[in-house]
Write a protein that binds this DNA or RNA. Structure first.
Lengths: 337, 337
DNA sequence: TTGTAGGCGTTATCAC
DNA sequence: GTGATAACGCCTACAA
């Protein structure tokens, strides 16, 4: 492969001058510039990325950590982040943690090994104490996931409030025995949602059915199993809060198949407002997240930190959700009242 | 950040010896090895990725080009490829072309700039003539998308046959007026599907309704519009072939909403066997692709080329599909015959 | 306006 | 077994 040296030789000039042309710097005669451009063209010269990175001590790359890209919520997040990042001249690399603490740590190493300039974490498996040291190697911004501690910027919704509203809605529809279904209860975000759920119950003086709580549901398949459990073990449950549209869809699918009426016998709420939630029959009541806005803000905050490393204001950007009421919770008797 | 030099100094040894330890090479006393490990630990040393890449002339990174990660088919492909690649010590970077020729070319540049060692293309917007020169800079493997030319390895299904079978199935169900719906007809893969569709028509002596063909449908929303068009402009259409489950879902959703019976008034087939196709009411007849197998093979072929650069056998790996017949095409009268 | 030279952090080669 | 040294390709003081 041709190097800057080759171009210089062919153009009969020095590496410096060639470098100036590459980087659009002044102090090069138009004539020589032309000669150099021709030489570059002739040799098919392209600057070597590794050399540049080493020399410049920057990669113009951002790593985004997420559980799995097959989850449409995160896919959408990436979609928007990439758009915004490329606009600033940054590249994004997608890092799937699969909810593994080890993988999360491995990916954080990218910051230390200088493979990326900064990191966005959209989920958090490890204790923050384990992550914090990496801040020495570069900026980290939290998006979606959050926590109480305030050592980095955070961009997120108020999940506690969202869960609270969903739950109140279920109760308003006449549900008395609610099952709480989520995917892993170890994250702060999950705790927040649960807190919102519990607060709604408390406010309406309803008991928390601990036995009917399931914290291992992520996929559609899990949702189907959730329904089976409910039908067999907790037949008195008449409403389900779920942490994702996929899980809600699984519950609804299986319920309908079993002849259990949704929402009359069992009301179900999802989360994220995926396309799926609209297409289901009955359509799913769900929480809409301002994905694009959060993604944009996240990248903006991170890039600013990259550009002005001193401006590390670890502030919080909170975005608001929207409860979308659809057929999976709209009980008939109430429609006519 | 600490460098190898710092570690060497602290351990009272040379860079060379430290390097040996880093790379697990022989000829280092256990005692000195220990000293070095301690020094690395104390300094929090991590080898600089850019320097390594420059020195080794390899990045251990593969770029995967795809239209958009929000398409679950490609998300699944990435999921599997990543697993396989990390198994071989390779990292994957996801490159969304959004069907743009320019972006596709930009991403191919990653090969020239040595940001990646090899490339997987799962779609192809540009003429192959435009892509071919990049082979000088490193190996390229096609996965999913394919073509007649044989200058690179290709891993794919027989889309012509898949479309043919879908179409024959529609006809067998009694459909006489078929609408052909796809997303962009400029790729070879799209042409193959259309050829399969046409062949089925021909074989069964049915006319091709050119007016009822729509080649701009990618998303659910497009599918909804497709149905509106059919209802308003081509009410005689009684069967639809679509290029994706998303589009099929949109068609079915809108049809059901409009009181048009699926499949009796309008039969619909999708493509890809996404979760969505199972959850729809009625469930969608679709084509299952062996995503994981194709992904694994693709990475395997590419990595082998990276390891043994001479072994550039540009052979073709063809995988077989499966037509999954579900309610969106199973007409009632036929169930009872 | 142009060129010279040193170094970014690593590893391979060769000598000891 | 260990260490000095020369690249890898690029950029940037500094000198001319």
């Amino acid at each position: 492969m041709a190097t800057i040296e080759d171009v210089a030789k062919l153009a009969g000039l020095s590496r410096t001058t060639v470098s100036r042309v590459i980087n659009d710097q002044p102090y090069v005669t138009d004539e020589k510039k032309q000669r150099i451009l021709e030489a570059m063209d002739e040799l098919g010269y392209v600057p070597n990325s590794s050399a540049r990175r080493l020399r410049n001590q920057r990669t113009d790359t951002i790593a985004v950590l997420l559980p799995r890209i097959t989850n449409p919520f995160f896919a959408n997040l990436i979609e928007s982040m990439e758009k915004k990042a490329s606009h600033w001249g940054y590249q994004i690399i997608v890092c799937q943690t699969h909810d593994s603490k080890k993988k999360e740590m491995d990916y954080l190493q990218l910051l230390k090994t200088k493979q990326v300039d900064g990191i966005v974490m959209t989920s958090l498996c490890n204790d923050w104490k384990a992550v914090e040291p990496y801040l020495d190697s570069g900026p980290i911004v939290l998006c979606n996931e959050y926590m109480e501690e305030m050592s980095v910027p955070m961009v997120h919704m108020d999940h506690r409030r969202a869960a609270y509203e969903s739950t109140i809605h279920l109760i308003d529809q006449g549900c008395q025995n609610l099952s709480y279904v989520c995917g892993g209860s170890d994250t702060y975000l999950a705790q927040e949602r649960k807190a919102g759920f519990l607060r709604a119950l408390e406010e309406r003086s309803l008991p928390f059915l601990e036995e009917a709580m399931m914290d291992w549901a992520i996929h559609v398949q899990d949702g189907r199993e959730v329904f089976q459990r409910i039908q067999q073990e907790f037949p008195y449950v008449d409403g389900v809060f779920t942490g994702s549209d996929e899980v809600a869809a699984g519950v609804v699918y299986e319920a309908v198949k079993s002849g259990v009426g949704v929402p009359d016998d069992l009301a179900v709420v999802g989360f994220d407002n995926q396309m799926l939630s609209l297409l289901m029959v009955p359509a799913l009541t769900t929480i809409e997240q301002p994905v694009e806005k959060m993604a944009d803000r996240t990248i903006e905050v991170l890039v600013k930190q990259l550009m002005y490393p001193t401006s590390v204001k670890a502030r919080r950007y909170i975005y608001s959700h929207k409860l979308l009421v659809r057929d999976s919770t709209l009980k008939e008797q109430l429609i006519h009242t």
